[in-house]
């Protein structure tokens, strides 16, 4: 059916890599609250305060990205000039944190916007660049800051508003991954790129409900395109649906005869202790899946506790303007399979 040269294009929405790129190094940096969470010990750097020596939170967010970039390069003993591409994105308008962080990095840069799905989008794009023969080394970095996101999307941070139980807490943190054509580490074997799905959710305080259909659609399509079952993965991690979205994904997929068992988890639920930390439905933000992957999951691979991971990044593609104009919230989910063999 398919004509042309796209021999690595599989099924309806997927790609399969012939020389799967390796994730050789990662780095994670988080804010104090994330450091107090259940994964606190897993992160490379935990900040003492949310300013990190900067005058504005926007500058802090930028610094987080810069730290994530330079530290992962240090780990791999590389210079920015050794990179063929750097892929970065964040939540702020015009992805300024990434653009500004990259002022100091001498490497060709492609900006990404996928909201909380940015890490998965970056890993999929980066892996295509490497496996396509366009790059040997690609750095993927993304992050978010609780207070910059609050300011942009919601209210001033000191305003005394009551958050509903469906609301999610934007993670302060950044994570970076170095993708290389050769080296040691887990490999990105295939990916399924999501389509934009909007089932009419309008509440920006309930993004789990908005994103769940996109997550279910991409996971379902991934399993179909590769004729796989959920059990073929040790862990299917969405990032970040929170408690509400996770439940809905299970319900939607159950209707299609796909039962997600214990191996289905969510980055937004892993990063915080919802009993102890007042984060409502769980964590969110580009930084959430980035630090959970870079800080926690990548180490699980190294420790031999994880062999096959499907990382399904979910993004709610709203802006404060579209919300005020009473538009519904479109969402997208990109899934990348990361495996050791």
């Amino acid at each position: 059916m398919r004509r042309g040269v796209a021999v690595k294009r599989i099924g309806k929405q997927s790609v399969k890599f012939t020389s799967p790129p390796v994730i050789t190094n990662t780095f994670s940096i988080v804010g104090p609250m994330e450091g107090q969470g259940p994964l606190g010990q897993r992160f490379d750097t935990v900040l003492e305060d949310t300013f990190y020596g900067e005058q504005t939170w926007e500058k802090t967010e930028c610094k987080l990205l810069r730290e994530a970039i330079f530290n992962v390069l240090n780990r791999a003993q590389l210079q920015p000039t050794d990179l063929d591409f750097i892929l970065a994105g964040d939540l702020l308008d015009q992805i300024v944190s990434s653009n500004f962080a990259l002022r100091e990095v001498e490497a060709p840069f492609l900006g990404l916007y996928g909201a909380c799905s940015t890490l998965a989008e970056g890993l999929a794009t980066g892996a295509m660049l490497v496996d396509g023969g366009f790059a040997d080394r690609v750095l993927v970095v993304t992050g978010s800051h609780h207070d910059t996101a609050e300011r942009q999307y919601r209210f001033p941070t000191e305003l005394g508003v009551q958050r509903p139980p469906t609301a999610q807490w934007t993670v302060t943190g950044a994570g970076s991954c170095l993708l290389q054509s050769q080296g040691k580490g887990p490999r990105v074997t295939c990916a399924t790129l999501g389509r934009v799905i909007d089932l009419g959710s309008k509440d920006p305080n309930d993004m789990g409900t908005a994103m769940a259909p996109a997550a279910a659609d991409t996971i379902r399509q991934h399993l179909r395109d590769f004729a796989k079952r959920p059990e073929d993965y040790d862990l299917i991690m969405t990032g970040d649906l929170g408690a509400v979205g996770v439940e809905l994904v299970r319900v939607i997929l159950r209707k299609d005869g796909i039962e997600l068992g214990q191996q289905f988890q969510d980055g937004g639920l892993l990063i915080f202790d919802r009993e102890q930390q007042d984060v409502h439905a769980g964590g969110s933000g580009c930084g959430c899946s980035a630090v959970v992957f870079a800080g926690h999951l990548f180490k699980l691979f190294a420790e031999g506790k994880l062999r096959r991971l499907l990382l399904a990044g979910t993004g709610a593609l709203l802006s404060p303007l579209t919300y005020q104009q009473a538009e519904s919230i479109p969402s997208v989910c990109h899934a990348v399979a990361i495996e050791v063999y």
Partner: peptide, 15 residues
């Protein structure tokens, strides 16, 4: 959309 919103309402935690 209507069907999904009905489903979501059933699973949404109430304040």
């Amino acid at each position: 959309q209507e069907e999904y919103q009905r489903l979501a309402r059933r699973h949404r935690p109430r304040p």
